[in-house]
Design a protein around this nucleic acid. Structure first.
Lengths: 331, 331
DNA sequence: CATTAAAGAGCAACCGATTGCGCATTTGAA
DNA sequence: TTCAAATGCGCAATCGGTTGCTCTTTAATG
């Protein structure tokens, strides 16, 4: 084995190309970038040589000269709940694919609670040109850090912070749609269990729930709405209450809740959808899990792939100085 | 918004530090790296200044000078099966954490089938110092590519290729353990369903199954062993056959198979473990899924975290020219 | 034909670090 | 006291690109 172990230590450089063609490296650089003044004939001569000897520029050197890395950071919570994993994975695949097409790469980093040291390292070490932040809790220290340091970034999900570029699914309309669907199906006695009020998404969905009732001229049964439920005991209690109130269908504001609700019903030997219907939003592993538990639930599906790819595109536009739409709602 | 959008465009450089202290940048560099000749007093003076003004070196520039990027590539299949997702995610978290501690970052890239273009781009663009390859199919073109280009890499999983540094769980002994456990429990009529013979792991586990019988002086019932089963129809057939043979317990060689077997049994209204016991290896989402389906299976759990962290450590050692053990079996 | 603008190509500085080599000073041994 | 070795530090080249500026050649204009 090579004792130095340097990747591609014998690669040809721009100087080799220039020497071989009897031109200056300026010319080679211009042929590649397409910028600056260069004759047509010379350009093709250089380009041909390059593809024949398959030279490719050293991105590190390029980065030093241009202050760019052609890397983007994908930052996800390190304190994830198991149920959420596939969401990030799918985002990652989609972001990575889009980045590749644009000749970028993706560095993954995590935030553990309020410890944003990994993120800081990424920025101070000049490792990335921008960040896709896949965590939107309120009052996020990472958002403040990124703003203060003028780091180009977009969030995957909605946040209340001013002047932040956001990519998200249209949770409001999705919930209007889901709720309307159920109401129009003639299902009476709807119940709702909502997640942590720290996540803006829960507000949006709640608003959608109300809006659907308004549009269809139904009255909202506020007694059967349980908000800010964020632990298993709370969910158990909410389910007990709702069943006691004779609810026919429970809308879960996120998959984690749905997961626990199904679990609770299973413990109580209640059948879904025979005894009680369940509705939720498909942005996690829930559907795959369902293929085993054979539980039929009503759900709205998100196009996570589109979300990731849009986020990636937008971030690169942003970091390259192009104009971007500050808030993009998908689906 | 800043029109240039360069990350940290106003950061202080080694020259600023040198000027402020009236020393040369050589001295500053030496104070940081600890290499080269430098006086104690000067070193602490530099170090103090650095931490006060929290200067941190530009990794890009450092990379250009040293031919290193302080990035490692984590390469995973793009054509994943849903069931496998959490495995990679857990690896990624663990690798990322370990890398951070050693001041490295992780770039994630995918291989789609035999298309290794993303991997090639990663290498030719000098984006990484080495690769953790989380795909071990036989005759993998990526392994050949990495060997030919003298790229330091380790595989996550066992491969038959010569001279490849491999990190894996000890599948052989894990299967010896699992099988022995079942045999000693007094379970008679064991059945086995094995996955694709392209994956070396399946051979190891099969060997372990046989070995356990030998050690305990039991006879292997070869009639109840179904190898190289790699589609749902095959699994259905194997299960039918095994049940007909009066098997009391089915050992599944991987989680994907286990997943389908459970599904099949559910369709047939067979109860686990009352009607038939199921044993498998826990290296995927199966356990989380089970928390819903309430199916009790016997399983051996792997420490994926240790695997990721060992792989990361080993790769960095390798790429920095240190000696590493070529094959490391964990657990 | 003279004058000027435009086009093509190269020089050399620069990005921010590392590092081999050389010079001066200190240290220690004879 | 003297000379060699060790120590402390800096110069300048280097890594592999980009880019402002200059020079030369060509084309266009009156």
């Amino acid at each position: 084995m090579d004792s130095t172990n340097h990747v591609n230590s014998n690669k040809i450089t721009i100087n080799d190309v220039a020497d071989a063609l009897g031109v200056s490296k300026t010319t080679v650089s211009r042929a590649i970038s397409g910028k600056g003044r260069i004759g047509n004939e010379t350009r093709t001569r250089v380009l041909n040589y390059i593809s024949e000897h398959n030279y490719s520029p050293n991105v590190i050197a390029k980065g030093l000269a241009t202050s760019r890395t052609y890397n983007i950071g994908f930052v996800i919570p390190g304190d994830y709940r198991i149920i959420d994993i596939p969401f990030f994975q799918k985002c990652l695949f989609s972001i990575s694919e889009t980045a590749s097409e644009l000749d970028y790469d993706v560095i993954v980093s995590t935030i553990n609670g309020n410890d944003i040291s990994h993120l800081e390292r990424l920025i101070t070490n000049h490792k990335v040109d921008g960040i896709i932040l896949a965590r939107t809790v309120e009052n996020d220290p990472s958002i403040r850090y990124l703003l203060e340091n003028h780091v180009p970034f977009v969030t995957l999900g909605t946040t209340d912070e001013e002047g932040v570029v956001q990519i998200d699914n249209d949770h409001f309309n999705a919930c209007v749609e889901l709720t309307s669907l159920l109401l129009l199906k003639g299902i009476t006695n709807l119940g709702l269990i909502g997640g942590s009020k720290n996540h803006v998404v829960n507000h949006k969905r709640y608003d959608g729930y109300i809006k659907a009732h308004e549009k269809l001229d139904r009255t909202v049964n506020y007694e059967n709405i349980y908000l800010d439920v964020n632990n298993m005991a709370g969910i158990d209690r909410a389910v007990d209450d709702l069943l006691e109130h004779g609810v026919h269908c429970i809308i879960c504001m996120d998959d984690s809740i749905c997961h626990h609700v199904l679990n609770k019903l299973s413990r109580d030997h209640m059948l879904v959808p025979q005894d009680v219907k369940i509705a939720s939003f498909y942005d996690s592993a829930l559907m795959e899990i369902n293929s085993i538990s054979n539980t039929a639930i009503t759900s709205i599906k998100f196009d996570i792939q589109e979300m990731g790819s849009t986020a990636c595109q937008t971030l690169i536009n942003l970091s390259e100085g192009r104009e971007v739409k500050p808030i993009q709602l998908l689906g």
